[in-house]
Nucleic acid binder design. Structure first.
Length: 525
RNA sequence: GAUCGCGUAGCUCAGCCGGUAGAGCAAGUGACUUUUAAUCACUAGGUCCUGGGUUCGACUCCCAGCGCGAUCACCA
């Protein structure tokens, strides 16, 4: 008789073979048919976060109530006075200990965990049944008084318990939790209730993005939103995702960067703009790359790359201080893996050519030695490839390794030859006015002194398109309207880009970009 | 896209010179009014990622595929 509920369910009406699911479905039916309880609830007003309920614990009220109970026991005519805080709370069941006539369970919400104690003697019978039958994963609301158990645990002593949503999926383990990364990313909603650290990371992410907005707005930047579906995907050297608009029968690309639109806004007269939003790049996936990622780009009229350097340095410092909870301008260091990263101002600055010389022992302009060293290091094409391409390869292999990963470092003044769209320095055209910020071996973002001569820009674009291979030329097209905009006239400007996901990785000590993106892209199962 | 590693119960993991599997937790039934990974007794739970091959016999060996992770390439 007893076992029939489970076995019939598992073999029959629900074709899910899992006994765990069958047990939950059986409880659902019992709630409905035996107790007349609808296990998918209704609006509840006045719910306080569990942390707030915990904070409402009052030692004097607790002691007073205990004395009153004692007194009432000795003399039943004494009225029981209870000055403990009355609260309504709600959350997901994450622990359940049934002692027979006394049930302890733990609820979890975004603010934390709190124990609920349910005594058979002090709640209606149906409420006690709900508490006894509760499974890991169920959503309950509870009314009661904030007190303490004999073992010293702060809890809500329930006077009412309501099933608000019966969970019908088997939960992860209560002790080991959920540690399988694939399941964590695919079923983030489970990860979030099983691993409070996940929720904390995303709370931190929100806080960081919000601090960035505050900082930029504080400096007079205006936030804008520009197209994410573009007829031409410009502004970066990356492969775009292609899509199609049916009614217009039009090929569209998901944007790879907002740059060309933000610059149009400078033409239109906005002096300081920024955008925080998604870019989409049809490239590989790894620990620091997700096909859609959040970037900030910012442009400042009549600034240059050094204007942006000061902005980014102050921004990263300010946000790090916010995360660390220290005032701006303080010493601030945050852990990242085995490193402790020092976000105190000023960040290090090193010129590209100096770092190159330090790492390789000769000038980057020394073509003969560049070629012979490339050959020594077994780089392909050491005799045929462009000199500056080899410089760039040597730099990435030897020079970037010299950067102290625990010190945020600006690498300034890249060779113009490998920064074709950047404005060359007026006095030294070989050098492009560009920097890259490196932290913990990751590139956080570049900045440039922007080109505003339409003829030079057109020439550079044209050259870039000419150099495109067959596949690249399917999406690399000349944005003539952008050139027109430059002809109307764009003020000289500084521009920067910053990978928000990577910054969040650093500040939240997350080793994978997937840990800071709520729903990272996964292959279809 | 390449190379390497991993895929066993709901979760976390053992296991096997080749003889069709085990633990803890979770689950079901029962006991228990102060538990903290509650405890005790009993019970149930598996396409050992998928498909081929070798073999008398494959979770184990081989091949292919799928998924995940790491490294590399592309990129930010």
């Amino acid at each position: 008789m007893e076992e029939s509920i489970v076995s019939e369910q598992s073999s029959g009406e629900h074709d899910d073979p899992s006994v765990l699911v069958a047990a939950r479905r059986a409880k659902l039916e019992r709630l409905r048919t035996e107790l007349g309880i609808e296990p998918f609830g209704q609006r509840v007003d006045g719910i306080v976060p569990l942390a707030q309920a915990r904070a409402a614990f009052d030692e004097a009220a607790h002691a007073g109530y205990q004395d009153a109970v004692k007194a009432a026991k000795a003399d039943p005519s004494v009225r029981l006075e209870d000055r403990r805080a009355a609260v309504t709370v709600a959350g997901r069941v994450v622990q359940h200990r049934d002692m027979g006539k006394l049930v302890f369970l733990w609820l979890r919400d975004q603010s934390g965990d709190l124990q609920i104690s349910v005594s058979k003697a002090s709640v209606p019978e149906a409420a006690f049944t709900v508490a006894s039958m509760a499974d890991y994963g169920d959503l309950l609301s509870v009314t009661g008084r904030v007190g303490r158990t004999n073992r010293g645990e702060t809890c809500v002593w329930a006077d009412g318990v309501t099933m608000q949503c019966k969970s019908l999926e088997p939960p992860p383990g209560k002790w080991h939790g959920l540690s399988d990364d694939e399941t964590r990313y695919r079923r983030r909603y489970v990860d979030m209730y099983a691993n409070p650290a996940t929720v904390r990371t995303f709370q931190l992410r929100s806080r960081i993005v919000s601090a960035i907005r505050r900082f930029m707005e504080g400096r007079g930047y205006q936030e804008v939103e520009t197209p994410m579906m573009q007829a031409m995907a410009g502004g970066a050297a990356a492969r775009p995702f292609a899509t199609h608009h049916n009614a217009l029968d039009m090929q569209l690309f998901m944007r790879i960067a907002p740059e060309l639109y933000l610059k149009r806004l400078l033409v239109g007269g906005l002096p300081k703009v920024f955008e925080i939003n998604r870019n989409f790049r049809n490239e590989g996936v790894d620990r620091s790359h997700n096909p859609e990622f959040t970037a900030m780009e910012a442009y400042e009229a009549f600034g240059d790359y050094m204007t942006m350097l000061e902005t980014v340095e102050s921004l990263v410092h300010a946000v790090a201080c916010d995360v660390a909870g220290v005032p701006e301008g303080s010493k601030v260091a945050l852990p990242f893996g085995d490193l402790v990263i020092d976000y105190a101002k000023p960040f290090r600055r090193v010129r590209y050519e100096e770092l190159f010389r330090e790492a390789l022992g000769f000038d980057m302009e020394d073509e003969a030695r560049v070629r012979s060293t490339a050959k020594q290091l077994h780089h392909g094409g050491s005799a045929t490839k462009d000199h500056w391409l080899l410089v760039s390869e040597l730099f990435e292999e030897k020079a970037e390794a010299l950067l102290d990963p625990s010190k945020p470092t600006f690498v300034l003044d890249y060779p113009s030859a490998i920064s074709p769209l950047t404005r060359p320095n007026r006095n030294r055209p070989m050098i492009a006015e560009r920097w890259d910020l490196f932290v913990a071996g990751m590139e956080i973002g570049p900045a440039y002194t922007e080109l505003n001569d339409p003829d030079i820009q057109l020439a550079k674009f044209t050259e870039q398109i000419k150099g495109a291979d067959e596949e690249e030329s399917t999406f690399r097209t000349l944005d003539e309207d952008f050139i027109t905009a430059l002809r109307v006239g764009m003020p000289p400007a500084g521009g920067m880009g910053m990978g928000i996901d990577r910054l969040v990785m650093l500040l939240s000590n997350s080793q994978s970009i997937r840990d800071v993106i709520l729903f990272p892209l996964m292959r279809s199962e």
